[in-house]
């Protein structure tokens, strides 16, 4: 593991030990109160942090394969939630096939293909396959939902993987590698979720999107933005080639659009009438419930860094 990353994982370990310690103390102090949900959530965080460590600790291919599997599971969750027409099974198989292909472009570091494959080629191919099947009832909805699912769960998430394919770049404290950018993006996105949740619990008064996500508050959002931006500014010189000003901007970008991704997926779930997209991650819901903010922050952070520095 390169550069600052071992220390960074040490910090995550310390954070999780603290979180588990606080929960254990709370449970002991208030044995009558129910802390099951918090406990489950923190347990799942341990698993997710281990997965990140495992992904970034070895060869890059491991991380790319892990991300491809996450995209597969997130897309499967999405497809299982939305209504699909039985006739579209062949179209869905093609859509699934796009997942390994997209990550193949990533591992080849073929930027041109990576960036147009799903938005152009798959976009044009899926309706063609549907026309061959010949069912026109529900055509627009089917082609729209399937492609939207691919864009959010595969195209967006694969930007995390493409950070690994970026060449090494000089930073303020030595060489910056893709693994460090991935760490920066993932940790800030997830901590932003936690910070918004905690600030909302602490100070939350005014709902920010009452119709879509009644638990989200203006206070939580603002608290999250301040916390994440501060952290982004502190971590920037160590993990990215960004200047202090650009680190601040990256923090605002990640916190603001992390929130956006979260409420967009909430809107999808509300439309379908479920609370969680799945049950794979105890205390959190499904993969999609955890990746929701990343579907926005991954492509936006990637292009921010890519435009200014690569």
């Amino acid at each position: 593991m390169y550069g600052i990353l071992p220390y960074a994982f040490g910090a995550i370990l310390a954070l999780l030990v603290t979180a588990s310690g606080i929960t254990a103390t709370l449970i002991r102090l208030h044995p009558t109160r129910n802390y099951t949900s918090v406990k489950l959530r923190i347990q799942t965080w341990w698993w997710l942090a281990s997965l990140l460590f495992f992904s970034l600790g070895f060869h890059r291919t491991v991380a790319v394969v892990v991300l491809a599997v996450l995209s597969f599971m997130a897309f499967k969750e999405f497809i299982s939630l939305i209504p699909t027409r039985p006739i579209d099974n062949s179209v869905l198989l093609l859509a699934y096939l796009a997942i390994p292909v997209q990550y193949l472009w990533v591992s080849m570091a073929w930027y041109g293909m990576f960036i147009i494959f799903i938005p152009v080629y798959v976009f044009l191919l899926l309706p063609l396959r549907m026309v061959i099947n010949g069912e026109t009832k529900g055509f627009v909805r089917a082609v729209g939902t399937i492609h939207w699912g691919l864009m959010t769960t595969v195209f967006s998430i694969s930007h995390v993987a493409y950070l690994l394919a970026l060449p090494a770049h000089a930073g303020a404290h030595g060489e910056v590698r893709g693994e460090m950018l991935v760490f920066y993006l993932l940790v800030l996105t997830q901590l932003n979720d936690v910070a918004q949740f905690l600030w909302g619990k602490l100070l939350g008064r005014h709902q920010v999107a009452p119709k879509v996500s009644p638990n989200k508050t203006v206070e939580g959002l603002v608290g999250g933005i301040i916390t994440t931006t501060l952290l982004a500014w502190l971590m920037g010189p160590w993990f990215t080639p960004l200047s202090p000003l650009y680190s601040l901007l990256a923090g605002v970008l990640i916190s603001l659009f992390g929130f956006t991704g979260d409420v967009v997926i909430s809107a999808v779930k509300r439309d379908i009438g479920v609370k969680d997209a799945g049950r794979l991650l105890p205390g959190h819901g499904g993969i999609l419930d955890r990746l929701d903010s990343l579907t926005y922050t991954a492509p936006l952070f990637f292009h921010f860094v890519y435009y200014f520095y690569y």
């Binding site: 597969f72 499967k76 497809i79 039985p86 099974n89 699934y96 799945g278």
Partner: peptide, 18 residues
């Protein structure tokens, strides 16, 4: 629930559905 969606009568390849 979900298996009839994944591989209904007359098809051979299961489509991933939870």
């Amino acid at each position: 629930h979900g298996l009839g969606k994944s591989m209904p009568k007359g098809t051979l390849i299961p489509v991933p559905f939870y």
